[in-house]
Nucleic acid binder design. Structure first.
Lengths: 208, 208
DNA sequence: AGGGTTTTTGACCATACAGTCAATAACGTA
DNA sequence: TACGTTATTGACTGTATGGTCAAAAACCCT
């Protein structure tokens, strides 16, 4: 019997994501959000609670979407895992050299979060781990296939790919073009074909 | 005969850098800067012109410092170029897994810049290229030494290392620990020992 | 010592911002 | 059709921000 809402939360979060991706959390104003979502301020507050909370929602959606996309890209079985990764990296090179001004919310959260304990940091850390998990799964398949040495450190390689893609994202934003970014992606992939896999298990007297 | 300043610009820029590295451009308030530098607002304005201009100064100093540091790290001749890069990457892993809340101003500028044409973007792009140049020089030495294949694409490898280090920086901020980051660095280095260098010259039907 | 020049100081300002309030509208149900 | 519940609207508020102004201070040179 209550009055129903005029909007779908997912639409609102999605519009808000757009704003945050372009401006960032700090620089996005509530007015930007009101304009982009079409709701009034009060409705935003009723539904989400504030700018920060809305960002967290958007971040979480962004994370799910990113995970979904990578899982989809690496989850096919019509090609070898290594070929899937290769294709994925090349697609990332293209995506990141696009000219839109978006920055993934995860990266934004990473940079804008302040403390170790704030929910932004927590969410971001979880996002990174989730993403790495997807890579790890694919790499593990490759290892089982014999496409990677049996002693390959799948975990660190997974994090490595997350690092490289984050770096490529930044470089794309810096204006590095598609050709160069593609070359970088190919460089990055060469790790998977190199010898001396055992080096990964030889950390130089350094402890966590 | 004019009244002399009470401060050295370099000190001020350096304190301001600290503030910007922790808070970012948008989130740093003029009051933060006033407090950190010890000058009054008006003095800041007289000397620099405003928050944005001060950030640009800090960014430029940060860039010089970063370039200097990498040049120093890679410029020695008491070790082979590849060993220098290895040592450098391992040191980066340690630095980035440190627990301070700083983010390099270059990364901040990269993320906070809005337009293609604003001075932030321009400065950042230049910084990236400068950094890549240093790597390229070292890699070129390696190639001349025969430590890299004659057909290695030194330019893209240089950009690759910039990308990886940026990614490591972000991951460190996300809380990835020293051990993992070190493993990532070692993974990244494996590119230099891999075979099939010719793949880098085989970009898959993609144009700049 | 005095004057020209620039810095410093601290009060000041307009604005823009995140967030709130109270009144009104819209719906489903009874 | 009236009521209870919740959404919407738009005006409102307090604060904090980036930036400015004008007066006073500090220096150096003559």
């Amino acid at each position: 019997m209550p009055r129903p809402r005029k909007f779908r939360e997912s639409d609102v979060v999605s519009s808000a994501s757009e704003v945050f991706a372009v401006h960032g959390l700090a620089a996005a104003t509530l007015d930007d959000l009101v304009r982009a979502t079409g709701l009034g301020k009060q409705s935003l507050y009723n539904a989400f609670g504030g700018k920060r909370e809305l960002f967290l929602r958007a971040l979480s959606e962004d994370r799910e979407e990113a995970t979904r996309a990578v899982t989809e890209a690496l989850g096919h079985d019509d090609a070898s895992p290594l070929e899937l990764i290769r294709g994925h990296m090349l697609r990332m090179a293209i995506e990141f050299s696009g000219s839109d001004r978006r920055v993934s919310l995860t990266t934004r959260a990473l940079v804008e979060s302040t403390g170790e304990e704030d929910p932004l940091s927590t969410a971001t850390k979880a996002g990174i781990e989730q993403l790495a998990g997807v890579y790890a799964q694919c790499l593990e398949h490759a290892r089982e296939n014999g496409d990677l040495p049996a002693d390959a450190n799948v975990q660190s390689l997974a994090v490595y790919f997350v690092a490289v893609t984050r770096g490529m994202e930044l470089l794309g934003r810096a204006g590095v073009g598609r050709g160069v970014l593609t070359a970088v992606a190919l460089d990055a992939l060469r790790v998977l074909h190199g010898q001396r896999m055992e080096e990964a298990n030889d950390p130089p007297s350094v402890r966590e």
